[in-house]
């Protein structure tokens, strides 16, 4: 049993990390007052851009291709999210419909382009992110084996982003303003905050994070773009809600979901786990999110102005 946990842990963490960064992206957007159902599509865009960039340059730059791919995915994720920001902030569109449109545009256009580039619609990368074992730290009993062996550099990068994001949201002027836009945009505006600009930035940050999340999934776990994000973006959205729109809550939620998904994925080959029906493990994140919504219905931590287009004229 202990060995099993040691075996599963690296995979569970690898599965958690793309969810974590995507969910953090959603946190920025929703905390500024813009619902982001388009996380799935933004992630898919990151997967496509990451896989395309890496597969086309990895023979020339074998070492750095992965990092360039991640960077490109974050950049194009932010660019693609601009479409959502433009609809929600400038055009006062229905944020849910715009998010759905983002998902549909992403899944149509990425496959369209992938087919145009390769003919098959799949983009494979040869070299993913290498697994590294951190010297000294990996010698710590128990924890060393769980957290510091077989890790990816992206895992540490994204955990760093988590710490930075928490600091940014709760300890800086930018974060306070951003959260104010999601709670009471009119008050924020009268205090001199440019609500439109803050929301644009927040949505673009969410796009960059989700794009990075998608590409991270490609370079660590899947190794290929095949035209779908398989619900990872929606899982990240569930984690955002289950984590009650708080960074550390999101970390806990994504780890829960990542672990459950990993157990479900490998349960077929490990006898001990085969007894747990996969159906329970796979539906667990969604069922528990529904339960969390019911339990928190009286005291929801959701941003108060979420989903409302900001109209200066109503101040």
């Amino acid at each position: 049993m202990v060995d099993l946990i040691y075996q599963l842990f690296p995979y569970a963490i690898a599965f958690t990390i793309p969810l974590l960064i995507t969910s953090l992206g959603g946190l920025f957007s929703e905390r500024s007052g813009v619902i982001n159902i388009g996380l799935e599509g933004l992630m898919l865009m990151g997967m496509f851009v990451g896989a395309y960039v890496i597969s086309s340059i990895e023979s020339t730059y074998p070492g750095t291709a992965v990092w360039i791919g991640l960077l490109a995915a974050a950049f194009f994720g932010a660019l693609f999210a601009l479409l959502h920001a433009f609809a929600c902030v400038t055009l006062n569109a229905n944020q849910v419909i715009s998010g759905i449109a983002i998902n549909m545009i992403a899944s149509a256009i990425t496959v369209y382009l992938a087919r145009f580039f390769t003919g098959s619609g799949n983009l494979q990368i040869i070299r993913g992110m290498p697994r590294i074992t951190i010297p000294f730290l990996s010698d710590i009993p128990v924890l060393g084996r769980l957290f510091f062996t077989q890790t990816y550099a992206t895992t540490w990068l994204i955990l760093l982003v988590l710490v930075l994001a928490t600091f940014l949201l709760y300890k800086t002027r930018f974060g306070l303003r951003l959260r104010a836009c999601g709670e009471h945009p009119h008050a924020a505006d009268s205090a001199g905050v440019n609500v439109y600009l803050m929301r644009y930035m927040a949505v673009m940050i969410s796009g960059a994070c989700a794009g990075l999340g998608g590409a991270t999934f490609i370079v660590t776990l899947s190794g290929e773009f095949n035209g779908t994000a398989a619900g990872l973006g929606f899982l990240a959205l569930a984690a955002l809600i289950f984590g009650q729109w708080k960074p550390w809550g999101i970390l806990g939620a994504t780890f829960f979901f990542g672990f459950a998904s990993t157990v479900a994925n490998v349960s077929q080959v490990i006898p001990v786990l085969a007894q747990i029906p996969g159906i329970y493990l796979k539906t667990f994140p969604y069922v528990i999110t529904l339960l969390a919504l019911i339990l928190s219905s009286k005291s929801s931590q959701a941003p108060k102005a979420i989903g409302e287009p900001y109209d200066k004229g109503k101040r």
Partner: peptide
């Protein structure tokens, strides 16, 4: 997908 996007923004 583009039709949905513009239907959301067309107002």
């Amino acid at each position: 997908a583009t039709i949905i996007y513009f239907a959301a923004t067309s107002v």
